[in-house]
């Protein structure tokens, strides 16, 4: 009889026994490694979306697995409730102000997880079944910003780079939105759809122009009167007669003593006024450089303002770019120009 047949029962016995022992050993080792016989502390968190979350997902602290996700469900408020547990060994790290952060692989290959940031204090651990805020909600972000949490940098360079890009993109988006609002306001003011400061200024300018037009119309009449007077002055004989005659203006001036005194008094006052005016003129001349500087600054400010408005109008993100700046013409002219 062949040896195998002769000892068939022993061979089969070993074959079965070894497999049963191996299976039992694997189950025991699994139990030890997966902490089947240890107490877990349960907590929950709220996330805006279940994207990237899965049952059994690990909760990590500084690269160490300290817990796992038990269940994920959609709440009545359309948020996602994540129930998770922390191993007994790490329960003392669950301090008040702790937050939870969802990590997702930017390459979409899995490997994400929940990162636990413990609260930066020496208080006792929070009670079981407590709420641990997530960084996806303002509450969690506030804790991070206020420095109440022991933060941890991402160990994935791609994720870290993308995390840096996100705030930049957010700022750029905010800037564009702000520019867009400004341009829209300008457009509304210019087209009259909205009444703002610019619209009021434009309205005032329009009213001033209308007044100027009216004034110019009046000036035309004055010019006509001047022309008439000039025509009359051309007839000198009548003019001299009326001046030199006894009842003429010059006759009255030559023969009336009272009038003469009055004229002398007026001339004296005029002399004094002239002296005062001369002093004022000297003062103004002394202040001229200051006034000139102010005017120059004013002009530069106006040019910059015009450039900003052109920039806004022709913003490369909105219209067609900033036109090249024109060389400003000087406001200062010499006292003796073009001599």
């Amino acid at each position: 009889m062949k040896l195998k047949i002769k000892y068939a029962e022993q061979i089969v016995g070993l074959f079965v026994l070894f497999s049963v022992i191996a299976l039992a050993l694997v189950l025991i080792l699994m139990g030890i490694n997966q902490r089947w016989f240890e107490k877990n502390y349960h907590f929950y968190s709220i996330f805006p979306s279940g994207e990237g979350l899965s049952r059994g997902m690990t909760v990590k602290l500084k690269g160490f697995t300290i817990g796992a996700v038990d269940s994920i469900r959609l709440t009545e408020k359309n948020t996602v409730r994540v129930d998770f547990h922390i191993y007994e060994t790490y329960y003392d790290r669950v301090k008040p102000n702790s937050v939870l952060q969802l990590l997702q692989s930017p390459l979409g290959l899995g490997g994400g997880g929940l990162r636990f940031h413990p609260g930066d204090n020496d208080e006792a651990p929070v009670a079981e079944e407590s709420f641990i805020p997530s960084t996806d909600f303002p509450e969690g972000r506030q804790l991070l910003e206020q420095g109440l949490v022991r933060g941890e940098e991402s160990d994935d360079p791609v994720a870290a780079a993308l995390a840096n890009i996100d705030p930049l993109m957010l700022s750029a988006q905010e800037l564009l939105e702000s520019l867009n609002r400004t341009v829209r306001t300008l457009e509304d003011n210019l087209t009259g759809r909205e009444r703002g400061l610019l619209y009021d200024t434009l309205e005032q300018s329009r009213a001033s122009l209308w007044e100027l037009e009216k004034t110019l119309a009046s000036t035309g009449k004055v010019t006509e009167n001047l022309a008439e007077i000039t025509g009359r002055l051309a007839d000198t004989e009548d003019l001299l007669r009326s001046l030199v005659g006894e009842q003429g203006s010059l006759g009255l001036l030559l023969y009336d003593e009272e009038l003469y005194r009055r004229i002398v008094g007026i001339l004296t006052e005029l002399e004094q006024t002239s002296a005062e005016l001369s002093g004022f003129g000297a003062y103004v001349n002394a202040q001229q450089p200051t006034i000139t500087g102010l005017l120059k600054e004013g002009e530069a400010t106006l040019i910059e303002g015009r450039d900003v408005l052109s920039g806004l109008k022709n913003n490369p993100l909105i219209r067609g770019g900033i036109p090249p700046a024109e060389a400003p013409t000087g406001t200062l002219r010499g006292v003796r120009p073009e001599e």
Binding site: K4, I5, E9, I11, V12, F15, V16
Partner: peptide, 13 residues
């Protein structure tokens, strides 16, 4: 059964 286990199990191992 023993022989079946021997031929199917042990010999295929």
């Amino acid at each position: 059964i023993t022989m079946q286990l021997l031929f199917t199990g042990v010999e295929a191992l």
